[in-house]
Write a protein that binds this DNA or RNA. Sequence first.
DNA 1: CGATGCCTTGAGTGAATTCAACGCTTGTGG
DNA 2: CCACAAGCGTTGAATTCACTCAAGGCATCG
Lengths: 248, 248
Amino acid sequence: MTIQRASTTKCELCPLRRMAHFRPFTQDELAFMKNFKTGELNVEAGATIFVEKSVNLNLYTVLQGSGFRYKMLKDGRRQILNFVLPGDLVGLEGTISGEVQHSVESLSAMTLCVFDRSRLDMLFRNHPALAYDLTWIACREERLLDENLLTIGRRTAVERVAYALSVLYHRAKQVGLTPGGKMEIPLTQSHLSDALGLSLVHTNKTIRKLQRLGAIKWIGSGVQTLDAVLLARTGGWPAPAETGRPFL
Amino acid sequence: MTIQRASTTKCELCPLRRMAHFRPFTQDELAFMKNFKTGELNVEAGATIFVEKSVNLNLYTVLQGSGFRYKMLKDGRRQILNFVLPGDLVGLEGTISGEVQHSVESLSAMTLCVFDRSRLDMLFRNHPALAYDLTWIACREERLLDENLLTIGRRTAVERVAYALSVLYHRAKQVGLTPGGKMEIPLTQSHLSDALGLSLVHTNKTIRKLQRLGAIKWIGSGVQTLDAVLLARTGGWPAPAETGRPFL
DNA sequence: CGATGCCTTGAGTGAATTCAACGCTTGTGG
DNA sequence: CCACAAGCGTTGAATTCACTCAAGGCATCG
């Protein structure tokens, strides 16, 4: 886990910013962001970025790589709350309330922009459009959680797996993580089971079923989507339109 | 469903504002809120305030009564995402993105403050502290959803019911909805089952089990908490400290 | 080349589901 | 004022979906 003060990626050259998926900055906002960003955090795969119930005031945006947010019960049962992909904001809860109530772990090597918490009030005072974006981002996360809740609470195992892979594939595609239809997210079946509230064994059997249907192909460290439409239909997922999304 | 333009409750006399639980406004913020609030919405019990996939730009704060947010699958399966109590903000998603992705229904008669969507940008431009509060509120909701996700994904039926009743009781208490230890929230067991991802029958059997343990007593239209500590312990819930919470 | 991590499969078990029925209360219309 | 319907809670029985247990295969790695 390395923190680099001299950020390698300049905000004006931000690779995310250039993606059509995200909304553009004004010159003014860009100038602020350059000061807001204090460095980059580089972690290898499988690293813990922060843990539940610790004090973590830092705010991050994922620049590269993927990971997941999760919570655990005392006896070790784990629930993955959501996956974090490039462009996603991480740690807002800690920035605002001091203590985070969930942990974050990386799936692949990740690079995260580290923002200066003490300048957050300047963001709210001088850049209302960015403050609005922050609220937008929080709302988006809430919507994703709502959907996960519906899935885990009310969908069957096959629906859950199909749904989760559909959404993840869709999200990965938006940020260019799906070259050739294969998700470049090194998921294990154990991750998927913990994200869906299923056991590992049953998750495996369900994946095999979807594979027999011809919807997907499980490859070590990634999933190949063969029939995105079939997959979405099986999961009861109406693909949404999401464009011009902001990020920090 | 009645909308009253001449709001009966003046912001400076707001009954919520007087509760120790919420953070105070400055004079300036109060003045803004008086203009931001355009009226009150009164609904009877069992009313639909807005439905999934409709355009609803209005922003509300619950002044009185309780309800719940939910999503449904095409075949009728319902998942209750969270309960809304006095002081809770409703409809932020629609205000920001236009279309809401969840429905809201009242459990009791409710009064909601209706805010003027077109002045939201003024809030962000001229009242950074309120904008910050908005973000705070969105984060809080996210935290609640995280916890629900953990519960539904990884807790057993007894734990789920105990957990849910603990949290709800705790939240109700904060806003004065628990005179004599009885929650003044007219829940049915069907609501509880849909909130926990359980079947109605099994929810009933689980409630009876908790009742035999002496933790609760189910009364038509409300739950009596007999042993809050036992209940929290059964649900594996570490009661949190939450004070000085903002609201709009 | 033994160890470890991940995927896979079968068998047996169990927790939660569906089905079915009944009691109680409330409200409503004849 | 009674009769009937509707909503909610309760319980037992049968079923099923998902879980645990157990074992083995196949890579990768030190």
